[in-house]
Design a protein around this nucleic acid. Structure first.
Lengths: 285, 285
DNA sequence: TTGCTCCTCACGTCACGTGAGGTGGC
DNA sequence: TTGCTCCTCACGTCACGTGAGGTGGC
């Protein structure tokens, strides 16, 4: 069909369609007279493109999505969600400005907001698929307090540099497939529920361990078995641990996060004492 | 001071500051050697500019705000709020796409979202200050149902054309000042509460009138007095009514809204029967 | 003289919009 | 021939980013 029909069926403009052709999202054949011949498949692709574009997804990301990269759309969704949250905070800040607040008051909060965004973006890029989403969600939780002193600013710089220099974790194909399959149906809501559960547990670890002692025991026993040690899950954990150790995750990234966010520092402390509690329970067994 | 100090104190880049100078947001003096001399006032202006920019306000709007136009910032806030709401809907739509929905399903909802935006933007521009905000908020309430047929599409076109051709309502200076002063402390929250109260009342007008009959009587009596008729409030109402009548508000805009949104049509019906109830009550008086 | 800051100018970004100027189909 | 569609090319948008190339101050 001719472009005219495509335009009326998709609601796109001629220039938009030409742009998508130029960017390689669709490739209609050129006829002898130079006219382009569009197929039904082109039309349905263009409809999808239109939907994604209007949902604020960039053309290059749409290309990935149409190329069958299912991770991209999850990634886009989480980015979108972070954006909405930031916008809500911005709304608050705008109201404060309207009610006479001075710029000096809100600039540190804007700094924090933008720092949170750039760290979350980098985490999403640095770790493949599910892991990036998990890390981004996890650390975003602590990145809302304003950036008010030099220490925080330096910590932020350290984190950004560390993430920028981090080599991309390239999992062996089988582990990557395993991870993707295991996490395929873990939507954002579930991730958030898990995170909230962890945060809750960190507040009163003894109670948590008491309540879940059977599961914990089962898990601990499982981890001792040969079967588990040979499983992809164990190999995945090992690979991650080795990657983190090689790149100074615990020496550079975590301490910088603690300097950037006092909330995170407190969380880490709670987690460490939780670990001690667990050790005591296990020894008492 | 030199630009270097300005940059370190504001956190802006050289190029950004140069852009704001080019756009006339600040005008530092040029010294003989061509260097620019910035003042303390420039620095605090730049801090405000930085805050507003990072809150997604355009440079031309910031110019208006810095020129002392207090309405602009309210306008920006309401736009921002609408944007957040749209983003939340977009998030839902993106989730549906992720879970396998076809583009055809969500395109009509995107149409409605964008129609809502363009109508709200036009209402904000067409009516001065508070009125624009009130209209935008009021009609946005009804602009969420998907655009699914030709009638709705035509209605949308009619509305957009009507708003684009609408002359800007230029109130006499004293009435404008009166309006601005009366509405200066009506924040969005209050507006929303009022709107919600109206929507509630429209569901069961008899009950509403019964509950507020004393206020209604007082108001009706007030409207009969000479004092009220000579007040700016009455003149404002008259001016608005005349403006609406001259431009076919009830003949073009309202019917198109009814065709675009069945929810709005229902609301109008309820309001009309509410009016009849009120007339009966007043006659029975 | 060296190394630093300052300046202006030009081109790039992203996803198109808006014509201009020319050809093809009926 | 006329009026329509189709094509490519060039320049514009918004708020800067990224150099290039040249000058001023110490």
């Amino acid at each position: 069909m001719m472009i005219h029909e495509v335009l009326s069926r998709t609601g796109l403009t001629r220039k938009a369609v030409e742009y998508y052709i130029e960017q390689g999202l669709i490739c209609p054949k050129a006829k002898e007279n130079g006219y382009r011949e569009f197929s039904e498949a082109d039309v349905s692709r263009l409809k999808a493109i239109s939907a994604y574009r209007r949902l604020d997804i960039s053309v290059s990301q749409i290309k990935e999505i149409l190329d069958g990269n299912a991770q991209t759309i999850e990634c886009a969704l989480i980015r979108h969600r972070f954006t909405v949250r930031r916008m809500m905070k911005k709304e608050e800040l705008l109201e404060r400005l309207l009610h006479g607040a001075h710029a000096d008051e809100i600039l540190p909060e804007l700094d924090a907001l933008e720092a949170g965004k750039s760290i979350a973006d980098r985490l999403l890029g640095a770790f493949p698929g599910y892991m990036g989403r998990y890390f981004a969600l996890h650390f975003s939780h602590f990145l809302s307090s304003p950036i008010e002193n030099e220490t925080q600013l330096e910590a932020y710089g350290t984190i950004v540099r560390w993430l920028d220099e981090l080599p991309t974790l390239q999992l062996p194909d089988d582990l990557q497939t395993f991870l993707d399959e295991m996490t395929a149906d873990i939507c954002l809501e579930k991730m958030e529920m898990v995170q909230d559960a962890v945060f809750q547990a960190s507040e009163d670890p003894a109670a948590y361990f008491e309540m879940h002692k059977d599961q914990i025991r089962t898990y601990m026993e499982l981890r001792e078995t040969e079967e588990y040690r040979a499983s992809p899950a164990a190999r995945l954990m090992e690979t991650m641990a080795a990657f983190q150790q090689q790149n100074g995750y615990n020496e550079v990234f975590i301490p910088a996060m603690e300097r950037l966010s006092s909330e995170y520092a407190m969380y880490r402390e709670r987690m460490q004492s939780a670990d001690e509690v667990l050790q005591r329970i296990l020894q008492a067994k």
